[in-house]
């Protein structure tokens, strides 16, 4: 076993999310971690692996009920962290779906991050990993084809879903400056697709019809759920600091994504689309707010070269395989591969 990482203690917030749960399972199997604190409002749903030789899970994992929306949670967290001598903190308590309960979301994401950082400021764990998304760059007509990590976090004019994450990330960046002893690592995940994950994008693409902004067709980028989980595991293991884009291989135009998924595109002029979207969002018929339409208009594609270089993470699946896997179709069933047909 390599030195220096024997018996690490990891605290994870947001173990109810897809990434949090995957990380718990991966750390549980890794002998280098001696103790894992699962901090959430609900116990993690760790199920036993299929092979019975493994010890019963949950041996290393301790669930502690922590509600980041409580006003005095930072004190609780601080005592917890010092009692268990936590050396790595993974902050993943962020929403994967936009919600109408905007105040609650703000308390959880923005203020919750403040509480977490308050607690970490005193304890100074060796490593702090934050889960973010590439949506924080915002879809903007001036975006280059590949956004690098230094790019400005534009967020979105009126999307609280995105802006809360931008504010949380700014706090973490400030924290990194003020506490140079802590290795702060921010992972910005491209939209995650896969057969088990559930988020705004999987729900959007599960519908039989999808809006298209008439005459616009931006390039899109996804990351497969297993690639994403592996990147998070890598980030906990490694000593790299700074922000990293975690993205899949390749890009595809939005309408091609819809065609691969077999969804019916509904082209709408912008003005109409915005009004329809407002109506559907207000009546809670769809899970994507009107501000999401900007991501169907302009580019928001990030460059994963830094993660490859410094984190040692390279995605294994191309965007087409990711889409087909989300769809549950075997690659040969995709039957649209031009190259293969011509060969």
């Amino acid at each position: 076993m390599s030195s220096g990482v024997i018996g690490r203690v990891v605290a994870v917030t947001g173990t109810g999310t897809f990434l949090g749960g995957e990380l718990l399972r991966r750390l549980e199997e890794d002998p280098r971690y001696s103790r894992i604190l699962a901090l959430d409002i609900r116990p993690p749903a760790l199920l036993p692996r299929s092979d019975a030789q493994q010890p019963a899970p949950g041996g290393k994992i301790e669930f502690i009920r922590v509600d980041l929306t409580q006003p005095t949670v930072d004190g609780e967290l601080a005592t917890l962290l010092s009692r268990h001598k936590v050396d790595t903190f993974v902050h993943g308590a962020f929403l994967s779906h936009p919600t109408h309960a905007a105040e609650w979301a703000h308390e959880l994401e923005d203020v919750g991050t403040m509480h977490v950082l308050n607690a970490c400021a005193g304890i100074e764990p060796r490593r702090f990993v934050m889960i973010s998304t590439t949506l924080v760059y915002g879809a903007h007509p001036k975006n280059p084809n590949f956004l690098v990590e230094d790019a400005e976090l534009r967020g979105h004019r009126d999307s609280r879903f995105v802006n809360d994450k931008v504010r949380a990330e700014r706090q973490v960046q400030r924290f990194a400056k003020e506490h140079p002893n802590v290795e702060v690592c921010i992972l910005r995940f491209a939209p995650i697709l896969g057969p088990t994950v559930s988020n705004m994008y999987t729900r959007f693409f599960s519908r039989p019809v999808a809006p298209v902004m008439m005459g616009h067709d931006p390039l899109m980028q996804f990351v497969h759920e297993q690639d994403a989980a592996y990147a998070l595991q890598k980030a906990v293991e490694s000593r790299a600091t700074g922000a990293f884009n975690i993205v899949g291989k390749g890009v595809l135009p939005y309408t091609t994504v819809l065609a691969l998924l077999g969804r019916v595109p509904v082209p709408m002029p912008q003005l109409v689309a915005r009004q329809v979207s407002k109506l559907l969002w207000a009546t809670q018929l769809v899970g994507s707010p009107p501000s999401f339409l900007d991501f169907l208009l302009y580019l928001c594609v990030a460059d994963g070269a830094k993660a490859r270089r410094e984190l040692g993470f390279a995605p294994r699946l191309s965007i087409k395989r990711t889409i087909l896997d989300f769809l549950g179709v075997a690659p040969e069933d995709g039957a649209t591969d031009v190259a293969r047909a011509q060969a």
């Binding site: 109810g16 993690p44 199920l47 088990t196």
Partner: peptide, 8 residues
């Protein structure tokens, strides 16, 4: 509750 834990 069982949704997330099981791996693919």
């Amino acid at each position: 509750d069982d949704w997330y834990g099981e791996a693919d």
